[in-house]
Amino acid sequence: MRVLLVEDDATMRNTLERALSRRGMQLTLCEDGARAVELWKSSSPEVVLLDLSLPGLDGLDVLAQARKAGLKTPVLILTARGTVGDRILGLNTGADDYLPKPFDLDELEARVRALGRRTPPASGEPAARDTGAIEIGELRYEKESGAVYHGSEVLELTPRELAMMQTLMARPGHAVTKERLFEVVFAGEHDVQYEAVEVVAYRLRKKLANTGVSLVTLRGLGYLLKA
């Protein structure tokens, strides 16, 4: 799922990028309200996460301009402005949902996926990109649910193993760097040694032993799933 995140706070922006990427979403980041509408047009997101207090142009103005330009992408407002009046104003301007800060990441994911189901595929783009699955050998990654299947059975993985597996399967035929996997697998965690990603890869490799798919280490490039 493609998500445009418009958020000026660097800490919040980086946290959401790591957390949602770990959940299989592809994020485009914007920190300036003045650039948001153009980036919205060029990135063709399925959902927009929009902060209200932005430099350059207020979030409500961004939303108003986007709707005036005919952009119909579902919008979830994320903001510390939590009064009823602010919520009504945002919804009347064209927002589809409203989540006040601070919020739970699981609730955020659920709301984003619910909004994403409203978005039809872009012109000329296969529906599988939005709601389909990615298959590598006997493994299937259901992007909507985030689950990985071996045949008809859900592959039993720990949260870290699942995060690594989702990231690898989201890029079939491409190596994913160790650095990227570390960011996704250990998002939001502190005091974790960089080599810990190798431990997760080792455990995942053992669980893939009878699936017909192997986790290959490409020296200098990263990791790759191969049928």
Rank of each mutant, 00 (worst) to 15 (best):
D32G: 00
L20V: 09
L39I: 13
S53C: 15
L54A: 07
S21I: 03
L52Y: 03
L29V: 10
W40I: 10
T28W: 00
L54D: 07
C30F: 01
E38R: 12
E31L: 04
E31K: 14
A34P: 02
V48W: 05
L20F: 08
D32Y: 14
S43R: 05
K41N: 04
D51T: 03
S44C: 09
L20C: 05
C30H: 07
R23T: 05
G33R: 08
E46D: 10
Q26A: 14
Q26M: 13
G33M: 06
G33S: 10
V37K: 00
L52H: 04
S43P: 00
L54I: 08
P45Y: 07
R23S: 06
L20N: 03
L29F: 03
R23M: 08
E31Y: 10
D32Q: 14
E38T: 14
E38Q: 13
R35I: 00
V47N: 03
S42E: 07
L29E: 12
L29G: 12
T28N: 08
L20H: 06
G24P: 01
S53V: 15
L27Y: 01
S43Y: 05
V47W: 04
L27V: 13
D51K: 02
S53N: 15
D32K: 15
S42M: 02
S53H: 13
R35V: 02
L54Y: 09
L39E: 09
E31S: 15
P45K: 08
S44H: 13
R35N: 12
M25Y: 14
M25K: 06
L49W: 06
